[in-house]
């Protein structure tokens, strides 16, 4: 079940403020197999340890897009999805079986664009050692309704 937090007061957010983090349990091979099937991304480096070893990776690695999907949940747990204007990530380190990922979002800027009050958020996904696996950026519309 998703954790439930009190709603974020978007108008009151200032640069440096953080959204509630999304904490994931340690990654399992079963999760990678389920994501492989559900996502349609059948690249064997994510599920076939023989292939991953031969490719020089040592073992299977998580789909970057699985980490990005978790980052997306960190956003959509708090903001209506229709208010996300852009969302991008850079996959800076490989995520492996056993890594426990935490996704965080921090307000990096407030600006007006296309007639909307917008926030720029810096995102990151770190493992249990604090290593950054994925960096991200999102722009959301926080205009009062």
């Amino acid at each position: 079940m998703a954790e439930h937090h009190s709603p974020v007061n978007w108008q009151a957010l200032e640069v440096g403020d953080r959204l509630p983090a999304l904490q994931l349990p340690p990654l399992t091979r079963a999760q990678l197999a389920i994501y492989c099937g559900a996502s349609g991304d059948h690249n064997p480096v994510h599920v076939d340890s023989d292939f991953a070893r031969e490719a020089g990776l040592g073992d299977v690695i998580a789909h970057g897009m699985l980490i990005m999907a978790w980052m997306g949940r960190c956003l959509t747990d708090q903001v209506d999805q229709s208010r996300i204007r852009s969302f991008e990530t850079r996959f800076t380190a490989m995520t492996r079986v056993g890594d426990a990922i935490t996704c965080e979002a921090e307000v990096a800027g407030k600006f007006v664009e296309a007639g909307e009050q917008r926030l720029r958020l810096n995102l990151r996904a770190c493992d249990q050692r604090g290593e950054i696996k994925t960096q991200g950026w999102a722009v959301v519309d926080v205009t009062p309704t």
Binding site: A55, M65, S86, T89, F91
Partner: peptide, 11 residues
Amino acid sequence: PQVLHAEQGFT
């Protein structure tokens, strides 16, 4: 076998 996903962006 040599490919990794480096970046992904959506608008």
